[in-house]
């Protein structure tokens, strides 16, 4: 299926993340929800739970994390399933599952617009929704991605779709908010050991801004709910 390319697809500068925009608690049915955009890429996430779980999925000692990724066009295929496992496991490491045995936490992420840095935005949206739902977590998790282009030593942070097309390697890293250790790493393409470490450090540095964004967003969200009360 083809969607004609969007006209305005600006290039992002190499060593700077794109602008983050977020809105929390915007769906009335979900326990926690958010929409997040990085540059022009936008995702919406909803969290239900901890709630009851089907008998066949139940785990007696901890909560089950049910992650679902919904693409914009068509049915979800093999690639989407892979993402579901990847992001689901990333969230599971952060959530204190053992606090809610025989329960499930459902995370649903809907793609709204894909203009690059998709996986990172997906992880961030899912986690922001988890924060909104007040699910207890060990630490916050945020992801940043970068690409390596041919002939350039500088990695490009949160690339656009056009930049991704010309990339020789694409890397996404998720870090925890306490020690800034890697929680999840996903790479495609060819790269050397040096390049990998460089990208890792660049992403780790840039990622701190995402945590700042989380804190600010959460502060505004909580002050907002105070007004509503």
């Amino acid at each position: 299926m083809k969607i004609p390319l969007p006209p305005g697809n600006k290039m992002s500068s190499s060593s700077k993340s794109q602008q983050l925009k977020g809105k929390m608690h915007l769906l009335s049915q979900a326990d926690g929800s958010c929409s997040l955009s990085v540059g022009q890429t936008a995702f919406m996430a909803a969290v239900y739970g901890p709630r009851e779980v089907k008998m066949n999925k139940e785990k007696v000692d901890k909560a089950v994390i049910e992650f679902m990724y919904r693409p914009k066009v068509g049915q979800s295929g093999c690639g989407e399933r892979f993402w579901e496992t990847l992001v689901g496991n990333t969230c599971e490491t952060a959530i204190l599952c053992s606090l809610h045995p025989r329960k499930s936490v459902g995370i649903i992420v809907q793609e709204l617009q894909n203009s690059g840095s998709q996986l990172a935005c997906c992880i961030n949206a899912a986690f922001l929704a988890l924060l909104d739902a007040c699910v207890p977590v060990r630490y916050m998790v945020a992801a940043t991605c970068c690409i390596i282009t041919e002939g350039s030593t500088e990695p490009i942070l949160s690339p656009t779709a056009v930049q991704e097309e010309n990339a020789i390697a694409h890397m996404t890293f998720a870090f925890d908010s306490v020690d800034h250790n890697v929680v999840c790493s996903h790479t495609t393409g060819c790269f050397s050991e040096d390049q990998f470490q460089l990208c890792l450090e660049v992403c780790r540095k840039a990622n701190k801004q995402v945590f700042d964004f989380y804190r600010e967003a959460l502060r505004e969200r909580l002050s907002g709910s105070m007004i509503e009360c």
Binding site: K16, Q18, A42, S223
Partner: peptide, 27 residues
């Protein structure tokens, strides 16, 4: 235009990073 721009920053529970807060990373 687009879904990214439709997020109204005046909404209480929304948050937007300003250009200034997104620092450059010293590679």
């Amino acid at each position: 235009f687009g879904s990214a721009s439709s997020q109204d920053p005046s909404h209480v529970t929304s948050h937007v990073t300003t250009e200034k807060t997104m620092e450059e990373v010293d590679t």
